[in-house]
Design a protein around this nucleic acid. Sequence first.
DNA 1: CCTACCGATCGGTAGG
DNA 2: CCTACCGATCGGTAGG
Lengths: 216, 216
Amino acid sequence: MTASAEHAEAAAAGKVPSKGELAAERIVEAAYRLFLEQGYHGTSMRQIAERAGLTLGGIYNHFASKEAIWVAVFMAKHPYHELVPAIKAVDAASIPDFIRQAAIGVVEILGRHDDLLNLMFIELVEFRGKHTPELYATLLPDVLAIGEIFAGKSGRLRAIPRPILVRSFAGLFFSYYITDILLPPEVRAMMGRDALHTFVDIYLHGIMADPVPADD
Amino acid sequence: MTASAEHAEAAAAGKVPSKGELAAERIVEAAYRLFLEQGYHGTSMRQIAERAGLTLGGIYNHFASKEAIWVAVFMAKHPYHELVPAIKAVDAASIPDFIRQAAIGVVEILGRHDDLLNLMFIELVEFRGKHTPELYATLLPDVLAIGEIFAGKSGRLRAIPRPILVRSFAGLFFSYYITDILLPPEVRAMMGRDALHTFVDIYLHGIMADPVPADD
DNA sequence: CCTACCGATCGGTAGG
DNA sequence: CCTACCGATCGGTAGG
């Protein structure tokens, strides 16, 4: 979400953001982009200050430390905030159609910037995942909701425990995304969009008990 | 590979490592562990020197810069060096058995330390993947070899382009591994080893044209 | 390979 | 929210 979008949201909720809130927003936005580009330790407070349009000292009126900025960025900008609503918004009657459309939507979002998952990797590598538990409380209801979506669609699933089904559904995207960013550009171009289609096709044959209806 | 293993290998190849080569090895080994623990920018040359058992200045007799150490570590310690031989060593007659045993072997290796893929993530986040192309030349023959393995086993595959098949095979492991390390410990314990079994089962149903024979 | 040092930059703070 | 500063640490080097 952009700073202006958050602003608009705050306004819609009846809250006029104070000047201080706007500055904090600018700091988070600036830090977010710098962290994606350079990682956490590779980004300095001075760079954040400059991009946010204030001086180094000014930052400390809004955040107690560099790590506090990281926590704010990690919570507010986690790709999950963009991906889960996109999945929930999919309108499809059958499980295969749901998964196909969800896959297209997710990959489209991931394709907009190839560093969307970097926040996750930074947290893993530079913080050894120590802030991740904080996120789970927020995340859990959505994960359960995605499990429910499967139950509401037509099409018979093979006997797969619900939690593992949801996990494998998430895994489908990791599988595609990670192998995509690791590919040399020429090879990636060669595979084209067929790869996603085939990945989804393999997954559908993997989870459905009924024959999988052809796409397109 | 440990420093002593590399030493033994060099000796077996008839090369007696010089004192300087041993020091360079110790530097790579020390940097490797520190990078996994703290990332690249989070690790200082002084920490590397201390753990390698020499002083800061001494490092520069072996490496021109900190980044040169990164390149040496990235090339020598990439998890691919451990994973590909393990996959090639699998002895199975059918494709399903091959994939099941490969999955068990890979996950066993990944399980030994949960930071095995951190090298990859650091390269992605802190260097924006700029050294990755150097690795492809080394990697390509092995990738093709894995494609050939499928051709030599019994069992009919669905019509899946060979490159995408290999990519999806790699993706299976990313899918399992990433969703594993992101899981809260309690949930991970709950899913247990079933999850891997189910992931492999889904994948096999996804790629095989014949009915998939039951495991165990 | 060590000692001793360089200038630059780091995260953070005092005081206004 | 800025100016001016703190001590600590950074990657790297000269000279031996």
